[in-house]
């Protein structure tokens, strides 16, 4: 009887784990996920303060400056999106740490497919930009300051484009 109970309990734990893992794995597609830029790359979660991006499969990415209810707008069928930031990397600090970034405000961002200019978008005041694109591989930025991203249909790819460098002392 005792062995049977142990077996039953083990089974229940395994099922609970399976369900939670399955739900966790599916989270990306059904709920909004938040990412913020840490000066080098986008990382999961909302920042203590400052702007961040909400992404969800099948929806256009949304830039938020504070926690708020996000209204979903569907991505056009067969399209994907890129959401990113164009920034000036900031390094150094003789009198204290100054690493970080400065947004490249209101700057044009070129998006190339192969050697062909696919789209030009403009960053906002905080350096953010978004674009809806066909699935495929793109180069964002003007060489040599360019990065490569892969756009998948129905999803948003995050991109951090270093468009300058600042030595701070």
């Amino acid at each position: 009887m005792s062995n049977g109970l142990n077996l039953l309990l083990s089974g229940l734990i395994v099922i609970a784990l399976c369900l939670s893992a399955s739900a966790s794995a599916k989270r990306q597609g059904t709920t909004w996920n938040y990412y913020h830029f840490n000066g080098q790359e986008f990382v999961a979660g909302q920042p203590g303060e400052g702007s961040f991006i909400a992404v969800r499969d099948g929806s256009l990415p949304v830039l938020l400056t504070e926690p708020a209810k996000v209204e979903a707008v569907a991505l056009p069928a067969g399209k994907g999106a890129v959401a990113g930031i164009s920034y000036i990397q900031s390094s150094g600090g003789k009198l204290g740490g100054r690493p970080g970034h400065v947004p490249a405000s209101r700057a044009p961002v070129n998006i190339f497919s192969g050697n062909k200019l696919a789209k030009t978008v403009e960053t906002d005041q905080l350096g953010y930009f978004t674009a809806v694109l066909d699935a495929g591989t793109y180069r964002i930025g003007t060489p040599p300051l360019a990065i490569e991203v892969v756009i998948k249909s129905g999803t948003t790819t995050l991109a951090s484009l270093r468009s300058g460098k600042r030595m701070v002392d």
């Binding site: 600090g93 003789k94 009198l95 204290g96 460098k165 600042r166 030595m167 701070v168 002392d169």
Partner: peptide, 20 residues
């Protein structure tokens, strides 16, 4: 801002031997 100075990149100024 507790800074002595800062130097910021501007735009590409590529030339022969200095492509970047």
């Amino acid at each position: 801002a507790r800074l002595y100075g800062l130097t910021t990149s501007d735009a590409s100024a590529a030339s022969t031997g200095f492509l970047h």
